[in-house]
Design a protein around this nucleic acid. Structure first.
Length: 273
DNA sequence: CTTACCTCCTGCCCGC
DNA sequence: TGCGGGCAGGAGGTAA
């Protein structure tokens, strides 16, 4: 499941391969991926160049001449670069053709991913998936003063708040578990009971764990052949996520798996009370 | 305003 | 062997 570090890794690789290319044609094989008008997708994309690729939370933002194409990979979305003559593979749902015979192919086994095509002045408009996103973890706005009031008004488990994209954008299930472990807090702890120290720790640990994951190319939990940009190594650094029945690296207690807010959650029952 | 539950979809794992 | 059932999971939607 691509979270902020995996998305950043994909972007870094994509930029090396498709920057400045001109789109000549589009094919959409599974229409539900495209959340804005499908006819616009076919009509407006040909002729556009990929000027730059950015990220906001877990969203990839392709900057084109006149539009932004926003792509969310959700669970299993991946991009591949292939020659235009390579045959369509089973889970390819969108193909971008470039003038040089290469193609960018969106592959998504579970078809959960989304794409939005927006004019440039609509990037943060009401219909944009970016409109409700909270602070970017690496920005200067991710401060105690920002976070404390949001945390204090929530009775939900702290892990649920970490996953709330309108509070902090970019954290998913893997890093939420890892952050809770580093906080030495049980993921079910009610957010509004956190100390000021814990709130400061969230900022520090979120930055540390995401930064380290990016440096290692993200986390690859299900090893697919060659997902563009993601052959991460952070899975070797996971303290609790997917570590059920393994010993805690700190205290040797067996890692357990529970449900928090309907989500599979891993923790050390000794370190995280 | 919450929060619980459903939906989207496929692959995988289990039991029979 | 193969089939059915259950499960996982980001985020948006809806019901309560």
């Amino acid at each position: 499941m691509p979270e902020l570090p995996e998305v950043q890794t994909v972007i870094d690789t994509l930029k090396l391969q498709v920057l400045n290319k001109a789109i000549t044609q589009i094919e959409v094989f599974y229409e539900n991926i495209v959340k804005t008008d499908l006819a616009d997708f076919y009509d407006l994309l040909p002729g556009q160049h990929i000027i730059d690729i950015h990220r906001r939370g877990k969203h990839i933002i392709f900057e084109l001449d006149e539009y932004y194409l926003i792509s969310h990979l959700r669970m299993e979305g991946k991009y591949f670069i292939k020659d235009k003559d390579e045959e369509l593979s089973k889970h390819e749902h969108v193909i971008f053709y470039f003038e040089d015979r290469s193609t960018l192919r969106y592959n998504d086994t579970r078809k959960f991913g989304t794409m939005h095509l927006l004019t440039k002045d609509n990037l943060y408009s009401k219909e944009s998936p970016l409109s409700k996103l909270g602070v970017e973890p690496f920005s200067n706005d991710f401060t105690f003063e920002y976070l404390k009031p949001l945390i204090m008004k929530k009775t939900a488990p702290i892990k649920t708040v970490l996953l709330d994209q309108s509070v902090i954008s970019g954290i998913g299930n893997i890093y939420a578990d890892e952050i809770c472990f580093r906080l030495r807090l049980h993921p079910s702890t009610k957010a509004n009971t956190l100390s000021d120290e814990s709130i400061n720790d969230i900022i520090r640990h979120t930055n540390d764990v995401l930064d380290k994951a990016i440096k290692l190319g993200g986390t690859t939990i299900r090893s697919y052949t060659s997902q563009l940009g993601v052959t991460g190594r952070f899975q070797n650094e996971l303290d609790v996520h997917q570590q059920v029945n393994k010993p805690c690296k700190v205290c040797n207690t067996t890692i357990i798996k529970i449900k928090v807010g309907q989500r599979g959650t891993y923790l050390c029952p000794n370190c995280q009370k």
